[in-house]
Amino acid sequence: MKSALSILTVIAALIGLWYAACVPMNIHEAAIQAQRAGQEVTPAEAPERRKMGRIALAVKNPGLWRTVYEQDRPQLPAPHQVGAELWKTTWGMVERGRAFSKRSLILHGWITLSATLLGFAFGTLLGIVLAVSIVHSRAMDMSVMPWIIASQTVPILAIAPMIVVVLASLSVDDLIAKGVISMYLSFFPVVVGMVKGLRSPDAMQMDQMKTWSASRAQTFWKLRLPSSAPYLFASLKVGVAASLIGAVVAELSLSQDGGLGARLLAGSYYGQTVQIWSALLGAATLAAVLVWAIGLAQGMTLRRMGFQR
């Protein structure tokens, strides 16, 4: 109860801050619109208004404050505007029986989700395979690990269009191309976590295996792999969020297929800030749900395996 109250307090404070920020952010547009409607604005000249700064302008014109929340294309849309847009493009579409129309965020969320899950599966698989080979081969450890780290310093935004072009020339399906781009981000936390996890058995546990003359394969399946479970789940949580980012970035390059990334792009083409923000919030919600789902699986698995109680 107490924690719920503190969470609500924080959320209320954030929304309050958001509303407050709308005033200076949208005050210029509000002034222009008010002037067009024949209202008095001080100062009357636009260049002068720009010179004096947003906050000073807002302070001089308290009469404009109400209108900063009612613009079609505000620089910063207010929470209720984003909320209304989200409602209209999700439940509102369902009510009209058009849940999977092109204007529905449900459709775009689903497109992003499928690319995310595919990329997450690719990335997890690649990450585990790389980690296993790194742990078992010193040559891999020395040669591949630096490349893996280097790969993450290349901006995904730069590499995504190249992946799209290369895969398109190989006539690979768009969904798989998006999965590959998403994998590029999500395999990294899995490699790092799994390498640490597979190496987590201590010297005593390894000696114990030795006293039983266990083979490398037996040590792997019976000791290393189960020991890595807590590390794997921690990595998967980071990995799934990274997958979603990768999928959204991929949709910027493959925007003809739709998706939350395509909505972001279209929104920024046409200055539809409300649409951008609702796509952003949609992506954030999707990420939260995915991370929560993995947390759930984590709790269940680790409790079962005796790592938590």
């Binding site: 546990q205 114990q208 000791l223 189960p226 479970a229 395996m305 005796g306 790592f307």
Partner: peptide, 10 residues
């Protein structure tokens, strides 16, 4: 037999 039991929790 080692100092710690080293039983596998799973």
């Amino acid at each position: 037999v080692f100092q710690h039991a080293g039983l596998y929790p799973w």
